[in-house]
Design a protein around this nucleic acid. Structure first.
Lengths: 278, 278
DNA sequence: TTGACAAATGACCGATTAGTCATTATTATA
DNA sequence: TATAATAATGACTAATCGGTCATTTGTCAA
């Protein structure tokens, strides 16, 4: 299982430099110092690797954004936290960010397309939550336009530090985008994007998650991670899932324990939403 | 020479669907109904094909935008014309637009990277011209931010009709973006992007064009095109280049003759700038 | 009809690809 | 230490890639 992570880390390096298709399995295994056969013990195919990478990072990203959006109490800081977290994630995992930008609209794989669309949908949902909370009904008619502009800002400005090697002041960048967002929200009058337009051309996605599915992910992670606090927290959460016995306060504390572990963010996200902690 | 155009047209289809690297020369020649050898009579390599495609479309696009920016007299309509022309070009050549979006940051080829950056620079120049004309010194401190937002709008909203199969009202879209642009220009106070930031991380590009270079392109096009009016106009323009003999009015008229021919837009652009017609 | 020239062909080349599997090395158990 | 179970190897396959070139086909004027 630790081999799987090694491969993923080294593959990221190469994919970011050369792109997915231009990188061979041979190159990856050489970069890892393992044999070609060993690669196929961890992943059934090269495609499965890229899917795993996307899941690994997008789950963290989605969970981080969701946490910030739902746990920032101060309305004044909401968009700033959102922008900052978005850019910080891109910066922290800039290699993956590059892959994402490069391969974004590359429909070479239907499964990948559906995956990306489902994460994108969650991202849009978070943005809409913020817009509804800050501006309410008063901008009902232009709220999808605002959402689209916000998405546009994040992707456009990400290019700056992903593809041009410039170091940027994320705080200032976030400030300037918060201002732009507020300005657009207050003054825009001409709507262009409707709810229908947002959802058209999308593939239908089943995004309901059952207790059993969560349980499966939790059990898998328990095997994977080694840190004691996180592992014990997961075990307790798993037992509570099978047979509820803990108080909400304890649950919330356990979730907080695992929230910042890179491999637990997604579980934390799933459970937060399962237990309706927001 | 007509074979070259056939290959380019058919290749566009496949590149848009599968991407550049995922499309083989074999596939292209089969789609054209020609042999593999015939392909290499028209293009020295597969790389040369993609470079030719990018030149072919980007020259048209750049020339169109430049014309609109320099020839729209009414300030009120300037940004509307700009947005409309941008989106209309993307829509008209949507297959190429897809390729552009897919392959944008793919640095698989240094020559391609430089090419794209030089066209991008021209696009940014056009935007800055509009900003300077409409808002002048009053927004000096945030003009690069505004430019970046405008670029962001065009690329973000292009996704709508390129990758989701939705038909959009380009006029309404342009209207709504004109409004957003004006709003941002009037109210933005926090600058983030500086002139240095825009030019950092860029490769140096030589964008001066000599008379000899223009002459070369003109002569080449004279051989290529068949339409009589355009051809004759080109011949006259060429003679005037070698030995000036025509009045400015005639030159302007000749340029107008060829302006809307897909293969002459670039020449028209080069000559307009050479004779300083703006 | 002939011969000279150009256009077009597709079998072929060496390199590279994703993926397999018989074999070997390592580890755990008894 | 002996045995069973697991992990890891890398030579191998079949397919495909971009690109070449001896050969064939087509098109002229003579």
């Amino acid at each position: 299982m630790v081999k799987k992570q090694l491969i993923m880390e080294k593959a990221i390096d190469l994919f970011a430099k050369q792109g997915f298709e231009a990188t061979s399995v041979q190159q990856i295994t050489e970069h890892c110092g393992i044999s070609k056969g060993a690669f196929y013990l961890s992943f059934k195919s090269k495609d499965e690797l890229i899917l795993a990478l996307i899941d690994h990072f997008m789950m963290q990203f989605t969970a981080d954004i969701d946490y910030v959006v739902k746990n920032t109490k101060d309305d004044e800081k909401l968009f700033h936290e959102f922008y900052y977290t978005t850019f910080n994630s891109f910066l922290k995992h800039s290699d993956f960010g590059k892959i994402l930008m490069k391969e974004q609209s590359q429909s070479f794989n239907k499964e990948l397309l559906i995956k990306m669309q489902s994460y994108d949908k969650l991202y849009e949902k978070s943005i809409m939550t913020m817009i509804d909370r800050l501006y309410g009904d008063e901008i009902e008619h232009i709220k999808y336009d605002l959402m689209y502009c916000i998405k546009g800002f994040t992707s456009t400005y990400s290019h700056l530090f992903l593809f041009q090697n410039v170091s940027v002041d994320l705080d200032l960048l976030s400030q300037s985008l918060v201002e732009k967002t507020h300005i657009l929200a207050k003054h825009t009058t001409i709507p262009f994007i409707s709810a229908e337009l947002v959802h058209m051309g999308r593939l239908p996605i089943d995004d309901s998650v059952t207790k059993e599915q969560i349980l499966e992910v939790v059990e898998q992670k328990i095997e994977e991670i080694e840190e004691s606090i996180e592992k014990e927290s997961l075990v307790l959460l798993k037992e509570h899932l099978v047979e509820p016995s803990l108080s909400p306060a304890i649950i919330k504390g356990l979730l907080e324990n695992i929230r910042n572990h890179p491999h637990c963010k997604w579980i934390s996200y799933l459970l937060r939403n399962y237990y309706k902690f927001y």
